[in-house]
């Protein structure tokens, strides 16, 4: 334990409105603490720089999974365990359930929240590639109002997001339009469980015969933020997967991905490996569409 806990303040405002009022009063002063699976690690290692924290873990109004005709709405305080146990998510958004299942261990899934995973903004986080592939939107709330932003526009840089200091991520909205889509996700971690991604790819594609009619790709650890792979998508859209075209399609897609990949060397892997394996995963997905 490398922090003096007496130097930190943590309060639990009674309601969401109270949290928003506090944030509005002194924007930037307070940091939200949900499941604690990130910030408490920083506390233990002496790296937690924020000294005034607001606990939102107890706010029931942020912990929900709502289903309407067009979308599933997930409260930011929903835990990974909640996501895994949700029949609606498992049925409509299987990649979501899958990525929740390999976020940390069971104990961490019981505490960690989807909102925390998004706002912590790690480029290696497990759920963002899925949200990018599914085209999620985020509902952000503050004392002065509510706004909705496409998730693909949320991450602005390394650990930088579009969230204003007085705002809180309220809901993650995921369209329920993937019934006819082929879906793929693969995480390459340091080991099979309790692992941080070296690279991960989530993909959804709609086929019209052997033509790719729609495609969306999200990746982890391929850039300084969770990244939608637009160049690879562009290379694939409307391409044909028949025997005559498949190899060229794969090559173009790999080239597209390579052009937009900006992975790094770090303690867990190398940039070269990440780029190459991302290409392999993409190829694995494309070839799986042929079957």
């Amino acid at each position: 334990m490398r922090s003096d806990v007496s130097q930190f303040d943590l309060t639990a405002p009674p309601s969401l409105d109270a949290v928003l009022a506090t944030l509005a009063k002194e924007p930037g002063k307070h940091t939200l603490l949900a499941g604690g699976t990130e910030l408490m690690v920083a506390l233990g290692t002496g790296r937690l720089n924020q000294h005034s924290l607001l606990s939102i873990q107890h706010l029931r109004e942020l912990r929900f999974i709502g289903v309407d005709d067009s979308a599933i709405h997930i409260g930011s305080g929903t835990t990974f365990t909640d996501i895994r146990r949700s029949k609606a998510i498992t049925a409509d958004l299987p990649l979501m359930a899958q990525s929740a299942s390999w976020t940390g261990s069971v104990a961490n899934q019981n505490r960690g929240t989807l909102g925390g995973n998004i706002c912590n903004a790690s480029p290696a986080a497990d759920t963002p590639p899925v949200l990018l592939a599914y085209g999620a939107t985020l509902t952000l709330v503050s004392a002065s109002g509510t706004r909705t932003v496409p998730y693909a526009e949320f991450h602005l840089g390394y650990k930088k997001t579009a969230l204003r200091p007085d705002e809180l991520l309220h809901t993650i909205n995921v369209p329920r339009t993937f019934a006819g889509y082929r879906q793929y996700i693969r995480k390459v971690g340091t080991r099979n469980a309790q692992a941080i991604s070296k690279i991960a790819l989530a993909a959804v594609a709609k086929l019209d015969g052997d033509r790719i009619a729609d495609i969306r790709l999200g990746a982890a650890s391929l850039a300084n933020r969770p990244a939608r792979c637009s160049a690879a998508e562009a290379a694939l859209l409307n391409q044909r997967l028949d025997a005559a075209n498949i190899d060229a399609t794969v090559r173009a897609a790999r080239a597209g991905l390579a052009s937009e990949a900006k992975p790094i060397d770090d303690i867990r892997s190398t940039a070269k490996y990440r780029a190459a394996v991302a290409g392999n995963l993409l190829e694995e997905f494309i070839r799986s569409l042929v079957v």
Partner: peptide, 12 residues
Amino acid sequence: ELVNSCLVPALQ
């Protein structure tokens, strides 16, 4: 529910 108590602040 199973939790790691090293990651839970007392207040929670």
